[in-house]
């Protein structure tokens, strides 16, 4: 078996004394959209957050097993978390722009990486906003506060902010769950475009969404990875009965 972009092996996560993820082994390929589905509390978000070590912020989380990105164990004690997170960006469920201007939101990442040149920053900001399909809507008001944008626009701004750091992987934790249908479809279109350049891993509650945008789908249930395969196969002819029950809406 070849190691793909993200590869985990017998990964176990304890939250205090409670086991939240059990024996997760998965191989997520590059430049594809991979969706994590499953009922609430199944561990899919927790697993996602392990991939850029955002779980480090939570007390009592203990991880065993290997999580390799490009063949490197990201939980190795020599790993610099800050560098890891630049490579593995994250978009959150609730849009969380900083109370700064649109421009400064996108420029935040490059700035903390030491980019000072105004022209270079302008260029990064423009590219990121274009890649996040929001440039046309905000190009005339980059100096305005990001808080004045609509929910959907804020979320695309947050995606732009993540892209501005030039990550290789973008993790998305239910990025459209708080949005109206129109904004959701914009985000979905965007995700499909983004896979040309980035490896996308998305957690979603919305099975139609997973079916529409993802190439591969992983079904999580009670902290275990039940099935991982091509999205088409998962939704038409899953191997496991639990997967089928969930897909067809018999539980969850």
């Amino acid at each position: 078996m070849t190691f793909e972009k993200i590869h985990t092996e017998n990964m176990v996560l304890h939250y205090g004394s409670k086991m939240a993820l059990n024996n997760i082994s998965i191989n997520i390929p590059e430049k594809k959209v991979t969706a994590f589905i499953g009922p609430s509390g199944c561990g899919k978000s927790t697993f996602l957050r392990s991939l850029n070590r955002m779980n480090d912020l939570i007390d009592g989380v203990k991880i065993e097993g290997n999580i390799l990105i490009d063949g490197i164990n990201i939980y190795d004690k020599n790993i610099d978390v800050v560098t890891l997170r630049k490579k593995v960006g994250m978009v959150f469920q609730k849009s969380n722009p900083f109370a700064k201007s649109i421009y400064e939101n996108v420029a935040y990442g490059p700035r903390i990486n030491g980019v000072k040149d105004k022209n270079q920053l302008d260029e990064i900001v423009e590219t990121a906003l274009k890649n996040a399909a929001i440039w046309e809507e905000v190009k005339d008001r980059l100096g305005d506060s990001a808080m004045g944008l609509s929910g959907g626009q804020q979320q695309r701004l947050c995606i732009a902010r993540t892209l501005a750091v030039n990550p290789e992987i973008v993790l998305m934790d239910e990025p459209a769950s708080a949005l109206d249908p129109l904004s959701t479809s914009k985000i979905e279109e965007l995700i499909v475009q983004l896979k040309e350049k980035y490896t996308i891993v998305i957690v979603t509650h919305n099975m139609q969404q997973a079916a529409r945008i993802s190439d591969l789908t992983a079904f999580f249930y009670l902290g275990e990875l039940i099935e991982f395969d091509k999205t088409k196969k998962i939704f038409t002819n899953p191997d496991k009965k639990q997967t089928e029950d969930y897909i067809t809406g018999r539980f969850g």
Binding site: R85, M90, Y108, G109
Partner: peptide, 27 residues
């Protein structure tokens, strides 16, 4: 200052101190 903003900053590869200095204190 919401926890989300701290998380956003850290997820962009900011250090803890950069997050405090550029997000938490201005906020």
């Amino acid at each position: 200052v919401p926890k989300d903003l701290r998380a956003a900053s850290l997820a962009l590869g900011a250090t803890k101190w950069q997050t405090i200095w550029k997000v938490v204190i201005p906020g």
